[in-house]
Simulated scan of single mutants.
Amino acid sequence: MSLRERLEAQIAQAGPISVAQYMTAALHDPTEGYYATRPALGEAGDFVTAPLISQMFGELVGVWAAAAWQMMGAPATVRLVEMGPGDGTLMADVSRAARMAPDFLEAAEVWLVETSEPLKAIQQRRLGEGPRWAASLAEVPGGAPMILIANELLDCLPTRQFVRTAVGWTEQLVGLDRDGRLAFVRNPTPAAGLLPDAAEGAVYEQSAAQAALGALLGGRLARDGGAALLIDYGRDRAGFGDTLQALRRHLKVDPLACPGEADLTVHADFPAVMDAARQQGAEAVILTQAEFLARMGVGLRAEALVAARPDKSPMIGRQLNRLLAADQMGDLFKACCIHSPGWTPPAFEDA
Rank of each mutant, 00 (worst) to 15 (best):
S2E: 05
L3A: 07
A14C: 04
P16M: 01
V19W: 00
Y22P: 14
A25D: 09
L27Y: 02
D29R: 04
P30K: 01
P30W: 00
E32N: 05
Y34F: 15
R38G: 13
L41T: 02
A44D: 15
D46V: 09
F47M: 08
S54A: 14
S54L: 09
M56Q: 12
F57M: 04
G58C: 12
V61A: 05
V61F: 07
A66G: 11
W69V: 13
M71S: 15
A74N: 11
P75Y: 14
A76V: 14
V81R: 11
P85F: 04
G86S: 10
G88Q: 03
A98K: 11
M100P: 00
A121P: 05
Q124C: 06
R126D: 08
E129Q: 13
G130M: 07
L137Y: 08
G143S: 08
L148R: 08
L148P: 05
E152C: 07
C156R: 08
R160C: 09
Q161Y: 04
F162A: 10
T165K: 04
V167Q: 15
Q172F: 00
Q172I: 01
L173W: 01
G175I: 06
L176E: 02
L176Y: 04
D177M: 12
R181F: 14
T189Q: 15
A191E: 07
A191P: 10
P196A: 06
P196N: 02
A199R: 15
G201N: 11
G201R: 08
V203H: 13
E205R: 01
S207D: 01
A211D: 04
L213G: 02
L217C: 10
R220D: 01
D224M: 09
G225V: 12
G226Q: 02
A227T: 12
D232L: 09
G234C: 08
D236F: 10
D236M: 09
G239I: 10
G241D: 01
T243K: 06
L247I: 07
V253T: 14
V253F: 05
D254E: 13
A257C: 07
E261A: 15
D263S: 10
A268Q: 02
P271T: 03
P271W: 05
P271C: 07
A276F: 04
Q279C: 11
E283F: 00
L287W: 03
T288L: 04
T288W: 00
Q289T: 05
L293G: 14
M296S: 11
M296E: 06
V298T: 03
A304D: 11
L305S: 05
A308Q: 13
K312T: 02
R322D: 06
L323T: 03
L323K: 07
Q328S: 13
M329R: 09
D331L: 14
F333K: 04
C336H: 06
C337G: 14
G342M: 09
P346W: 00
P346M: 06
E349T: 09
